[in-house]
């Protein structure tokens, strides 16, 4: 039963809830609370609109099947050692799927977040990253299973762990980058346009589809600074070799060979750079 006085009490302002000028005690608690709530929202969306996930699983499967078939009759040994093209391609598809899944961000909802007293706007980045990483791991799992079925073999447990780490690092950087773009660009249409223009060139300018040795000299240079290459090459190595360590040389560039730990360092640096670079965008948008 609603009485007049209970209406009054529910609708009255309560200044005691709103703290002082400075942020109150548990900034970390606030950050975790909002990050958890935003992540939960994304998973509810996924559960009620699973089409993104389904498409995200079908697409890499088609890549493997069709691209694999495209080069079936390529001369043996063309892709190095005794590799068929399906085996060569699987790491590229894993990385590219994670990459393109992390790119597209939509915010019909932004103003609601922007007028809220968030502890930090990095909670938006954190929630998106957690969500995209979970999504990418599901996709990666399916691709790894599918390519094993198509004859690409399966890395050992340690190798799978290393692949997971590499996927995680790529997704973190790309998610943050796309959030930065989403804030810098006027709207979602413009974001799609940017993705449309950059997506495939980034793919072709990496070693996802062909080894470095196939490329023109200038493209070799471009591919060697493309972060995607730094994720694809070590995964490819892990697919082919069961013996490896942090010091193993896993990647060639026109000028030097790079070890696994250096590759991971490069990916970490890429993430740190992106997170730093989007900071002013978060600030400006959310002054």
């Amino acid at each position: 039963m609603i009485t007049q006085s209970s209406i009054q009490s529910s609708l009255s302002p309560d200044p005691s809830l709103h703290g002082g000028l400075e942020d109150n005690s548990s900034a970390l608690g606030d950050f975790l609370q909002e990050t958890f709530a935003l992540t939960k929202r994304l998973f509810i969306q996924l559960q009620r609109r699973p089409s993104t996930l389904i498409a995200g699983i079908i697409q890499p499967f088609m890549w493997l099947l069709l691209f694999g078939a495209l080069f079936t009759n390529a001369p043996g040994g063309l892709f190095g050692e005794d590799l068929n093209y399906g085996q060569f391609l699987a790491p590229g598809v894993i990385v590219f799927t994670a990459f393109s899944g992390a790119l597209d961000r939509e915010f019909g909802f932004l103003n609601r977040l922007l007028v809220a007293p968030l502890a930090s706007r990095y909670s938006i980045v954190a929630a998106s990253t957690i969500y995209i990483i979970a999504l990418s791991f599901m996709q990666t799992g399916v691709i790894v299973a599918a390519s094993a079925f198509l004859g690409a073999g399966l890395p050992n447990i340690g190798g799978l762990g290393a692949i997971a780490l590499i996927v995680l690092l790529v997704v973190l950087g790309v998610t943050a980058l796309s959030l930065g773009l989403a804030f810098a660009l006027p709207g979602h249409i413009e974001l799609i346009a940017v993705i449309f223009v950059t997506n495939l060139p980034l793919l072709f300018a990496s070693t996802a589809l062909a080894p470095l040795s196939f490329m023109a000299g200038w493209l070799q240079v471009v591919a060697s600074i493309n972060p995607l290459t730094y994720a694809i090459e070590p995964i490819r190595y892990l697919y082919l070799h069961s013996e490896w360590g942090l010091g193993t040389l896993v990647m060639d560039t026109p000028w030097t060979s790079i070890s696994l730990w250096a590759v991971i360092l490069v990916l970490l640096a890429f993430d740190a750079l992106v997170l730093l670079a989007i900071q002013p965008l978060l600030r400006r948008r959310f002054a």
């Binding site: 608690g29 609370q33 909002e34 958890f36 969306q45 977040l113 809220a116 007293p117 968030l118 502890a119």
Partner: peptide, 15 residues
């Protein structure tokens, strides 16, 4: 989101 879920999200955003 349902109406109730949206309000719970909003509550978390305001801590």
């Amino acid at each position: 989101l349902t109406g109730r879920e949206l309000l719970h999200l909003q509550a978390a955003l305001y801590h």
